[in-house]
């Protein structure tokens, strides 16, 4: 009967497709269900503050210099001596990112000497006007208490909690520059977040940042 089995061979595919119809689906029903993003996901940028409310950005323009898409525009200015914006000589006076040009490579995060710019998990940034795609400092900089700002209101697509997630890329590259960072946690604490909890292989620096953690 092997000739019979051979003859049926080409038709076995029909059984396969029929069977597959009753299998569970692999599609994620976005936006009702969202997939869990990797910890080091490259999403929208934020400009961080120290726990005391000072801006981390010192207006050095290294991020703009390294940006392969040339989407970052920064202009530094001298800190006013009586009311300094950042703990240093200068601060980021103008900070703009053109999100239509940005390729989300994260090199700005790597270049930043003060960990002022980091990436979050939010990627739903569609706009109806090209001008709206240029994020200014107003939108990038977090509130003094550490709450991120966003030009659009929260909705089924925009989960503002995602803006609070993840300095993962920073963790991988800061200080030692090695993905398998070992030793003490070496990044600076941020408003709201405080000191980030250590990753695998790291020990807690137990920095007293004056902020009762996230």
């Amino acid at each position: 009967m092997s000739w019979f089995a051979d003859m049926l061979g080409p038709w076995r595919g029909f059984a396969v497709t029929f069977r597959q119809m009753f299998r569970p689906k692999v599609t994620t029903q976005y936006p009702e269900e969202k997939r869990v993003k990797p910890q080091r996901f490259h999403g929208r940028h934020v400009l961080n503050r120290y726990p005391d409310g000072m801006e981390k950005c010192i207006g050095c323009e290294l991020c703009a210099g390294i940006c392969p898409a040339r989407c970052i525009y920064v202009r530094g200015a001298d800190n006013p001596p009586d009311a300094p914006v950042s703990p240093g000589e200068r601060f980021g006076f103008v900070y703009e990112i053109n999100m239509l040009r940005c390729i989300f490579c994260g090199m700005c995060v790597e270049a930043c000497p003060t960990e002022a710019i980091t990436m979050t998990h939010l990627f739903e940034m569609s706009v109806t006007d090209r001008d709206d795609a240029i994020y200014t400092k107003d939108e990038l900089l977090v509130e003094p208490d550490g709450t991120p700002r966003h030009p659009q209101p929260a909705g089924p697509l925009i989960d503002l909690e995602e803006l609070k997630l993840g300095n993962g890329w920073l963790r991988a590259t800061a200080s030692s520059g090695r993905a398998a960072f070992e030793g003490l946690v070496a990044w600076t604490p941020s408003a709201t977040f405080g000191a980030e909890p250590p990753e695998r292989g790291q020990t807690d620096a137990d920095v007293d940042d004056g902020n009762e953690g996230a």
Partner: peptide, 10 residues
């Protein structure tokens, strides 16, 4: 729909 179901899609 049917083709999608055969391909484990919706």
């Amino acid at each position: 729909r049917v083709v999608a179901f055969m391909q484990n899609r919706y």
